Computed example of a mutant assay.
Amino acid sequence: MEPLGQSQVWQYLSGLSANHQIVLLSYEKADDWANEQEKSRIKEIVSSKGVIWIPLRYHKKPSAIATAFDIFLGILVGSYLTLKHRVKIVHARSYVPSVIALALKKLFGLKFVFDMRGFWADERVDGGLWPKGSRLYRTAKWFERRFLLSADRVVSLTQAAVDEMQNFPYLQGRMPIFEVITTCADLDLFNPDAHERSSQNDDKPFTLGYVGSVGVWYLFDETLQCFKILQKVIPDARLHILNRGGHAYIHERLNYHQIDPEAVRLEVTDHAGVARAMCQMDAGIFFIKPAYSKTASAPTKLGEFLGCGIPCLGNVGVGDMATILESERVGLALGDFSEVAMRDAIVRLLQLVREPGIQQRCRQVALRYFSLEQGVKAYDQIYQELG
Rank of each mutant, 00 (worst) to 15 (best):
G5F: 08
G15W: 04
Y80G: 01
N255A: 15
Q231V: 03
L25A: 10
L334Q: 08
M281C: 13
P261G: 00
K84H: 08
L56W: 04
P62M: 14
Q351W: 01
L83K: 15
H195E: 08
Y80P: 00
I65K: 12
A103W: 14
I241D: 07
V330E: 09
F112N: 01
L332F: 13
E144N: 11
L332S: 07
P205L: 07
G215A: 10
R354H: 12
Q11S: 14
L386D: 12
L157F: 11
A121L: 10
E385P: 10
D188S: 13
Y256R: 06
G317E: 03
I382M: 11
R174S: 02
P97E: 09
M321V: 15
V155Y: 04
G331M: 11
D115K: 04
V155H: 05
P62L: 15
S94P: 07
S48E: 03
D344P: 02
I45R: 08
L73V: 11
I288Y: 00
A185V: 14
Q231K: 11
D31G: 02
A121W: 08
P290Q: 04
D122T: 13
L171H: 04
Y137N: 09
K84G: 07
I177N: 10
G273I: 03
F178M: 07
Q6V: 08
E196K: 15
A378N: 11
